[in-house]
């Protein structure tokens, strides 16, 4: 299977973006998918949203997933995030096979191991910024005093210390997304998954978000998997998986020779980078 041959963590380690990171041998694998498949039934026709995807992601990597709509990239993200169950194959995160978790344990996995950021932020509209950040800690039964302290610290990290008591609708898109990042960080997850995180942001806010993601990777060794169309995001990923028809078409390492052998569509996207 061609897709299983691409994407080892060592490739990512060689990427220029990861020079500051540790040596390849010392970087533990955080996410591994093995022959992952997901089929949906549309009436009597089974549609393969994902068809044999095997990828490996190491700690501290920033991974992009690109592809046309319907290619299965969001499905891949949902399977890694434990929001959906595969029809076939396995997802292993931090050494735990998600297939062995029951529904309650899977919710707990999402709570403690995964952070989600969405295109439209999906903050709780009735809660203030700091309350939104505290929410997952509340679900994890973190004591109230500790929650407040940590949420405050995280909002400082994302640069929103002056906006803590604002409601989401009083914040700009970029600010809301930074609250969402702080929320995603609240239970110190292994991986943060982003589904078009810059999709609703202007380019300035998008760049600022990527700066933040880079800073978090550098300072907290957080791993990111970002589904995106945005060249600004793609340019700053360590590795990018290009997905087409539910399969990994290619693995791209931006700003290298590798990136020059691209499909027309991929080239178009990459052209804007240089």
């Amino acid at each position: 299977m061609s897709s299983s041959q691409v994407g080892s963590p060592s490739v990512g380690a060689e990427a220029p973006a990861s020079k500051a990171a540790q040596t390849p041998e010392a970087r533990p694998v955080v996410v591994q998918t093995i022959d992952l498949a997901k089929r949906y039934k549309h009436g009597r026709i089974a549609v393969a949203a994902l068809d044999g995807v095997s990828i490996t992601i190491a700690k501290g990597e920033i991974i992009g997933i690109v592809g046309p709509s319907g290619s299965g990239k969001t499905t891949l993200l949902n399977l890694i995030g434990g929001l959906d169950r595969p029809s076939n194959g396995r997802v292993i995160v931090d050494g735990v096979d998600l297939g062995t978790l029951d529904e309650g344990k899977l919710a707990d996995y999402r709570l403690k191991k995964i952070g989600f950021i969405f295109q439209f932020y999906n903050l709780m509209s009735t809660l203030t910024a700091i309350e939104n950040v505290e929410l997952p800690m509340g679900f994890a039964n973190v004591p109230k005093a500790e929650r407040g302290e940590r949420a405050e610290e995280l909002l400082k990290t994302v640069g929103l210390e002056l906006r803590m008591d604002h409601m989401p609708d009083e914040l700009s898109g970029g600010e809301q997304q930074r609250v969402a990042v702080a929320r995603a960080l609240s239970n110190s997850p292994s991986v943060i998954l982003g589904d078009e995180p810059t999709g609703d942001l202007d380019s300035k806010s998008a760049k600022a978000l990527m700066d933040l993601i880079w800073a978090l990777r550098r300072e907290k060794k957080v791993t990111f998997v970002l589904v995106t169309h945005d060249p600004i995001v793609v340019a700053r990923c360590d590795r990018v998986y290009s997905i087409r028809d539910g399969k990994v078409l290619r693995e791209i390492i931006p700003k290298t020779e590798n990136a020059k052998r691209l499909s027309e569509e991929e080239s178009l996207m990459m052209d804007t980078l240089y």
Binding site: A107, R110, L111, I114, G115, F116, N122, M124, F139, A140
Partner: peptide
């Protein structure tokens, strides 16, 4: 609905 989806994604259990 989407808010509920987000709650589930960030780890809220059924009981919560």
């Amino acid at each position: 609905t989407r808010e509920i989806g987000a709650l589930k994604a960030i780890g809220a259990g059924k009981g919560q």
